[in-house]
């Protein structure tokens, strides 16, 4: 087999544009490729890729492989795997970077096992070991209670990267690169699953991932109501969004799309207000990138106070309305 060279970013599209995770992967992939003095490629798979291939170059790719096919409109493991496997074998990169997104989580393990190589998921930091030229991949383990660095000599070294963990490069439309349309015959007989229906449970208002302020309710708020009243009022005056820990989502108090953490959404707002949240490591994993965490909890020993910049110890039913009213006054005046 050919020698493995270069970094391949497995790209994703969102609304016809490059997804933000892909710009982040290109940012970190560019650094790794430069350290290795090798190339950075990006693979884009969809029914139509369009302008996103130019975006990928502007964000750092030297080459963009586009695979377009009507059957690739929606992600399905058995069709996308055909593309990923073929390109991984043909391009034989040193490393493949994917996002720790719903696609990456599903595709990366299948690809790693299909190719018989190693995978490190949900990485926060990547670097090149100068001697062995191997990727040093650091990821949280034990729910975020520790971190571990892994390496593997098997090529390609497949890695998924947590959203918002890496910074994209400044977009530069003058960057030069090559777009390589690539044909992959999708064998429909190999697609064993059928998507019968897609149900969107979109939450009204600002998207959690984009909100500058998030007010998150934990199990301690006691039920579905406060998410619609006390917490929403606070979020509204700060032009923010309401989020939740996992228990409110598991209990059906809120849609699961609102849940933040290791297995939910990863957010990094300017202000993160955690209300009746204990601060379990698995939850903090999803919000520790926030600039300022503010905690309101009746238990002074709650772990969330170890993460927070400001805190109030007290029952949220008493603290939050007064906090909201005072904010209203301040913001009006």
């Amino acid at each position: 087999m050919a020698e493995n060279k270069g970094i391949l970013v497995y790209g994703e599209l969102a609304g016809g544009k490059l997804a933000s995770i892909t710009t982040e992967l290109l940012g970190c992939g560019r650094k790794l490729a430069d350290d290795l003095k090798e190339d950075l490629s990006c693979l884009l798979v969809s029914d139509t890729v369009g302008e996103a291939s130019k975006e990928a170059i502007a964000f750092g790719a030297d080459r963009v492989y586009t695979v377009e096919d009507a059957s690739l409109k929606q992600y399905q493991a058995d069709s996308y795997m055909q593309v990923a496997e073929k390109l991984a074998k043909e391009l034989s990169p040193r490393a493949i970077l994917m996002g720790q997104t719903s696609i990456g989580r599903d595709l990366a393990p299948r690809l790693a096992f299909r190719l018989g190589v190693d995978l490190a998921t949900d990485c926060l930091e990547l670097s090149i070991d100068p001697e062995a030229k191997l990727l040093m991949r650091t990821r949280p383990v034990y729910g975020g209670n520790a971190q571990a660095t892994f390496s593997s000599e098997l090529m390609p070294q497949i890695t998924t990267v947590r959203t918002k963990a890496m910074s994209p490069m400044e977009r530069d439309d003058s960057r030069k690169g090559e777009v390589i349309p690539t044909k992959v015959e999708i064998d429909a007989s190999k697609i064993r699953t059928k998507i019968v229906e897609t149900i969107k449970e979109e939450v009204a208002g600002i998207k959690l991932e984009d909100a500058p302020v998030i007010v998150t309710g934990g199990r301690g708020v006691g039920g579905p109501e406060p998410f619609k009243t006390t917490l929403k009022e606070l979020a509204d005056i700060l032009h923010g969004a309401v989020g939740a820990t996992r228990p409110p989502a598991d209990n059906g108090w809120v849609p699961s799309a609102m849940h933040i953490g290791l297995t939910g959404k990863i957010v990094a707002p300017d202000i993160y207000i955690a209300v009746a949240v204990s601060g379990a490591s698995q939850h903090v994993a999803g919000c520790s990138g926030s600039k300022n965490i503010i905690a309101i909890n009746k238990d002074p020993e709650a772990n969330i106070f170890k993460e927070a910049k400001f805190g109030v110890v007290g029952k949220y039913e008493e603290v939050v309305p007064a906090f909201t009213n005072k904010l209203k006054e301040i913001l009006a005046g």
Binding site: I271, I294, A295, I296, P300, F305, K306, E307, A308, K309, F310, G311, V312, V313, G314, K315, E318, V319, V320, P321, A322, F323, T324, N325, K326, L327, E329, I330
Partner: peptide, 22 residues
Amino acid sequence: AKCEIIEGDSPEEAGANLAVKL
């Protein structure tokens, strides 16, 4: 870890003080 705990004579006052602090 450096969390500044905002105090008040009552939970309500602590809540209001938090707004002032921010």
